[in-house]
C-alpha cells in the first residue's frame, strides 16, 4: 500500500516536473507575473503585435495544479492612459494547461498590461504580462 502511495507521489511529482519543464522549454516565451499565491506558473508565447490590428498569443500554465485550470479570461489595459482594449479576446482551451487567445487589439503604442484570470478547481489565480506595442 505504502509502495503504491510512493509510486503515485513519484508519478505526480514527475508530471509536475514535466509541465514545469514545458514552461521553461518554450522558445520565445515570456514569463507571466503571478499575483496570486500558489504553485502555478505560466508563460506567454506571443505572435508579432501589429499596432491596431488583431493578434494572438498562447498561454501555458505549469505546476502541479496547472492542468486543473479549466477557464481563463484575458484583458489588457494601458496603465498610463487608463483605458483597456476595445475588443473581447476569444480563448480556446488546447489541453494540458495550454490556451490559445485570439482577437487581441492594442490600438495605441506604449506599455500594455495583459491581465489573466485562471479558474479551475481552487481559487482563481491572477497573472499579468507587460508588453510594449510599437
Amino acid at each position: 500500500m505504502k509502495t503504491l502511495a510512493t509510486l503515485l507521489s513519484m508519478l505526480c511529482a514527475n508530471l509536475w516536473a514535466t509541465t514545469a519543464l514545458a514552461c521553461q522549454s518554450e522558445a520565445e516565451a515570456k514569463p507571466l507575473i503571478s499575483t496570486s499565491p500558489g504553485e502555478v506558473s505560466g508563460v506567454a508565447i506571443l505572435e508579432p503585435i501589429p499596432l491596431s490590428q488583431p493578434f494572438g498569443l498562447q498561454l501555458l500554465f505549469c505546476g502541479k495544479d496547472a492542468t486543473t485550470i479549466k477557464e481563463i479570461k484575458v484583458g489588457a489595459v494601458m496603465p498610463a492612459h487608463q483605458h483597456g482594449m476595445n475588443y473581447t479576446p476569444v480563448v480556446d482551451a488546447l489541453g494540458d494547461g495550454r490556451f490559445a487567445v485570439s482577437g487581441m487589439v492594442f490600438h495605441m503604442p506604449g506599455l500594455w498590461a495583459v491581465q489573466i484570470a485562471a479558474t479551475g478547481r481552487a481559487m482563481p489565480m491572477y497573472f499579468t504580462l507587460e508588453v510594449h506595442a510599437r
Partner: peptide, 15 residues
C-alpha cells in the same frame, strides 16, 4: 498626436 493618428493612414481606426 501619433498615439491615435498612427500607421500609414495616420489613424488607429478607433474612437
Amino acid at each position: 498626436c501619433a498615439f491615435c493618428h498612427s500607421g500609414p493612414a495616420f489613424t488607429n481606426r478607433e474612437f
